[in-house]
């Protein structure tokens, strides 16, 4: 157990993030637990509104000073982040834990040059002069593959292309060699070729810096490409989590099946329609009773009685390191999975 702890960089236990609103309490994240070892990559997948981004912001304490209610524990290298005074948390932000945001155009300040923004991230945590920090920024821009870094340093975000902006964002995040990098939908705003380049870059930099990465995405392709472990979120909590290979080859729960089936594949027959998950994400103010996924679940009939509607399933281990939240019997799951594979292949 001690050995386990030593290898854990980030440990999130029973995280809850609730927002009081005029219409009621929005339970964006409702009891989430996961852990991450140094140098590993975790993919968090889910629809919009499933609580992925809220989770990542809770780790950095970005909800502080708002009406959000955060509870549970987030321990980073043995330090409890939720209990940490803001002053000390600030020393970790951007230094030990850095973040990349979805839309780099709105995430970069329009009035400051790219170089200045990267330099600022460096100067906040190092007592160096402006010139030194700018030199460091240039080095980082060069590292993330921006040509003519010395010149582009003095340009503004709107003068960069989308891919270049995201590279600059990454440069800014990595300028302090963080031990944990959180990438919130890092490639969503980019086109496919640039997307591949950015993921390649992140992998390369991970090898170089040895950072742990959390990738938040709705795109399973990204997870397959970059992650070691995956956590599938639905309506504020985990419905399935485990190693990428396990979850992708032996998915154990209808929502994950839906996600996997809705992924375009080269080997799919031409003209075959992509599967979609019927219905829309549930209300986070009054989530469905029982299993939160049940209103949209096509396999509810396979469960005896009305367990799906009345009792909430718990996360349970199906194989070492592979957790799933579902009332379906293991045998039923295996049967459905077998049929699905026959159908697809």
């Amino acid at each position: 157990m001690t050995e386990q702890q030593a290898r854990t960089l980030l440990d999130v236990r029973d995280l809850r993030v609730h927002f009081p609103t005029a219409d009621g309490l929005v339970r964006s994240v409702d009891g989430l637990s996961f852990s991450l070892a140094p140098g590993r990559t975790l993919g968090i997948v889910g629809e919009s509104g499933s609580g992925k981004s809220v989770t990542s912001q809770a780790i950095l304490g970005l909800h502080r000073g708002t009406r959000a209610q955060v509870s549970g524990s987030i321990s980073f290298d043995g330090v409890d982040l939720l209990g940490l005074p803001t002053r000390e948390l600030r020393r970790l932000r951007g230094n030990e834990i850095a973040m990349i945001f979805q839309d780099p155009l709105s995430a970069l300040h329009p009035y400051y040059t790219v170089g200045r923004q990267i330099a600022e991230a460096y100067r906040v945590h190092h007592s160096v002069g402006k010139r030194q920090a700018l030199a460091r920024a240039e080095e980082m821009l060069d590292l993330v593959g921006i040509p003519n870094a010395g010149r582009r340093l003095h340009e503004y975000p709107h003068q960069f292309s989308g891919g270049m902006r995201q590279r600059a964002m990454i440069a800014m995040a990595l300028v302090n060699d963080p031990r944990l990098l959180i990438a919130d939908e890092p490639t969503t705003a980019l086109d496919v070729t640039v997307q591949a380049q950015i993921l390649e870059l992140m992998k390369k930099l991970q090898q170089e810096f040895g950072s742990a990465i959390i990738v938040i995405t709705h795109d399973l392709g990204v997870v397959a490409d970059i992650a070691d472990d995956v956590l599938v979120m639905y309506a504020g909590h985990a419905v399935e989590q485990g190693a990428v290979a396990d979850v992708f080859y032996r998915p154990q729960m209808p929502y994950t099946w839906g996600l996997l089936a809705s992924m375009p594949r080269v080997e799919n027959p031409r003209g075959q329609r992509l599967a979609t998950i019927a219905g829309s994400p549930p209300s986070l103010i009054a989530p469905p009773a029982g299993c939160r996924f049940h209103p949209r679940c096509a396999y509810r009939g396979l469960v005896e009685g009305d367990a799906c509607v009345t009792s909430a399933p718990q996360l349970a281990t199906t194989e070492p390191g592979h957790l799933v939240r579902c009332h379906l019997e293991a045998a039923e799951r295996a049967r459905v999975l077998g049929n699905m594979k026959d159908g697809v292949r």
């Binding site: 020393r91 932000r93 951007g94 945001f101 839309d103 709105s106 300040h109 600022e120 991230a121 906040v124």
Partner: peptide, 14 residues
């Protein structure tokens, strides 16, 4: 705005 969140995420003092 998003860039204010970015600034906080960088560790810039309030």
């Amino acid at each position: 705005e998003d860039y204010i969140r970015t600034a906080r995420a960088k560790g810039v003092p309030e």
